[in-house]
């Protein structure tokens, strides 16, 4: 019992208070008020002096309250800077983990009630899919049904995708392009930053150049194959464009911006992207117009399986591939050096 009573300083409340104002106890003690000891008789004083004293005492109490107030404020401030920050940080971690755990938990509950993986009678396999597969070959002329779907039935969606890519490239261009001063020269600070980057650029690296000479044509050819065969086999504009751009980036890495600039400049980017997107929009507008009004489309579908078949799908694949290749290449060039 006595042990417990003597342990009052370690009560949670006291511990919390001490933890809160750790290191500020000395300040607290400095402002202790002096009080009369018990048993001491109050001394005789004349009333005028007593009034003065009383006023001084009032003043003193007022000052002390003010000081305590300030101390409390400072305490709180110091607390938010040190321990409060840590506390809130831990709370943040805890709540984030809790939120993530709850998201995983509820989504797992949903997954447990979903149709089994690989089942044929799921709601997603409805009449739309049946129609796409059974009529797709006759209506689009493409043996690759995914290409037939994204570039014919859902071509508007793909136009939006290409536009998103183009806009992203424009936004990165705005954000990262090296600013020019009034005379069209890059500013001094940016030149300094540039020379920093050049430090890491390999100069006439024989191994890299040899690899690039060997690999770039293969990559470009393979990319072209994937683009042109998009309606017959897996692939298409997006994957083929990414392969072509990887070939271009390899060439750029091996031979530097000066040589790569001979075939790819801002003008190329502008005109190729604009031309490809414009062609896509016009071609699809034509086919939508014909389809919606029941007019006969003058685009031959060809025999399924031949390279020249599928109506508009191959030209559209080429347009998408050009946009993707340009966008990827310009992303790389801008992040690398802030320009072409």
């Amino acid at each position: 019992m006595s042990k417990r009573r003597s342990d009052w300083q370690n009560r949670p409340q006291e511990r919390f208070v001490r933890w809160m104002r750790e290191g500020y106890l000395a300040l607290d003690e400095a402002i202790e008020d002096s009080v009369l000891q018990p048993g001491e008789a109050p001394p005789e004083v004349d009333p005028e002096l007593a009034a003065q004293h009383q006023e001084a005492a009032l003043q003193h109490r007022h000052d002390r309250d003010l000081a305590l107030d300030r101390l409390a404020q400072y305490d709180l401030y110091a607390w938010t800077l040190t321990k409060g920050r840590r506390l809130i940080g831990r709370l943040h971690v805890l709540l984030s983990l809790l939120l993530g755990g709850m998201i995983i938990f509820f989504l797992l509950g949903t997954v447990a009630h979903m149709p089994r993986f690989g089942a044929a009678d799921v709601p997603a396999n409805n009449e739309v899919i049946t129609r796409y597969i059974e009529q797709g070959l006759a209506e689009t002329g493409a043996t690759n049904m995914v290409a037939g779907m994204i570039l014919d039935y859902r071509a508007f969606d793909t136009l939006g995708e290409s536009t998103v890519l183009f806009i992203a490239a424009c936004a990165v261009l705005i954000l990262l392009r090296i600013d020019l001063d009034d005379k069209g020269q890059p500013t001094q600070q940016l030149i300094a930053e540039e020379s920093d980057d050049r430090h890491y650029e390999p100069k006439n690296d024989r191994i890299l150049q040899g690899t690039a000479i060997l690999l770039t044509p293969i990559l470009l050819l393979f990319g072209l194959y994937v683009i042109l065969n998009g309606h017959l086999s897996p692939g298409g504009g997006f994957s083929g464009g990414a392969i072509v751009s990887s070939g271009l980036i390899l060439y750029l890495n091996a031979f530097g911006f000066k040589k790569a600039g001979r075939f790819f400049s801002y003008k190329t980017f502008q005109w190729v992207s604009f031309g490809a997107l414009g062609f896509y929009g016009v071609a699809k507008a034509y086919s939508f117009y014909c389809g919606a009004n029941g007019l006969e489309s003058h685009i031959p579908l060809g025999t399924p399986g031949a390279i020249l078949s599928g109506g508009l799908i191959m030209p559209l694949n080429i347009a998408v591939g050009l946009v993707v290749a340009c966008t990827m290449y310009i992303f790389y060039a801008l992040f690398r050096k802030g320009g072409l």
Binding site: I129, I133, E134, L137, N144, M145, V146, S233, P234
Partner: peptide, 12 residues
Amino acid sequence: KAPIVVDGVTQA
């Protein structure tokens, strides 16, 4: 199989 028509089979 993957949705690429082989040998003209178009059943869903």
